[in-house]
Amino acid sequence: MMNLLVLQLLNGLQLGVLLFLIAAGLTLVFGIMDVVNLAHGVLYMVGAYFIATFAAMTGSFWWGLLLTVPAAIAVGLILELVVIRRLYDRSHLDQVLATFGLVMIANEAVKIVWGTSPLAVPMPELLSGSVPLMGPLQYPVYRIAIIASGLAMAGGLYLVINHTRIGMLLRAGATNRAMVSALGIDIGKLFAIVFTLGAVLACIAGALVAPILSVDTGMGESVLILTFVVVVIGGIGSIRGAFLGAILVAVVDTLGGVFGPILLRSVLDPSAAGQAGRMLAPMLIYILMAALLCVKPDGLFGGRG
């Protein structure tokens, strides 16, 4: 049982840092720009397709990862310029409609460009295989690398947000957008930076996960819902909240799925416990979200009125 707990905590952490990378952009875009971006999952998917393409072109995962970053910046800037910029003054409903349309266009475009069958990204030689943890337990090196790089990026983001001028503007923008623009800051430029930063982070998350999962058109939507839960739990606009929320959601999700049925088995008969556990496990994070919103309606670190 102890073994399972350790493995699941690691799995939770790994899912958590990925969720954080996606949620960070989403929470900033929502918090600072006040745009509901349903197409954020698309960027995650596009990142995975980028690395699949670049890795196949160069024959190296590392070059693929490196080339994904400028491509992600380009996509972020273009998307902001062409679509998102036109949505700032529109209602949330319009934004939802437009970005949902974007999801469909993007999925179809990806199918046209890359085909319908899932793509595979080879795992870098250096990070393949697994390391012994304790006893017979092993853990994949690559997942450890995801955890490490995710934590490093979270740390970097913390430094940028809290100790640089641009970070100061971001925080100010999240708290009071009108005041920031009244102070003479070019809010248009700030928005473009925020959106692109979010796009790059989501693309990197997609690129990191590509060697584990197959790269597929639906992959964006599957994480988007979880990411919205993270943003709501963490508090809209808060990077710190997104980090804690992501880890919390991921750990509850991975532990609940496994230990829920086991715990239920002690009170119910095995088949009923299995049935109930299967139904309850996916609900746990939503129960968590509902419970948290009862206590803190703005989320963990949501400060906006």
Partner: peptide
């Protein structure tokens, strides 16, 4: 153990953790 996963699930880390633990 008997696990039914979500149709279309792509990350099996939880199931693999159980397999590793139960041997």
């Amino acid at each position: 153990g008997e696990v039914f996963t979500e149709l279309g699930q792509l990350d099996f880390s939880s199931e693999l953790a159980q397999i590793a633990a139960f041997q």
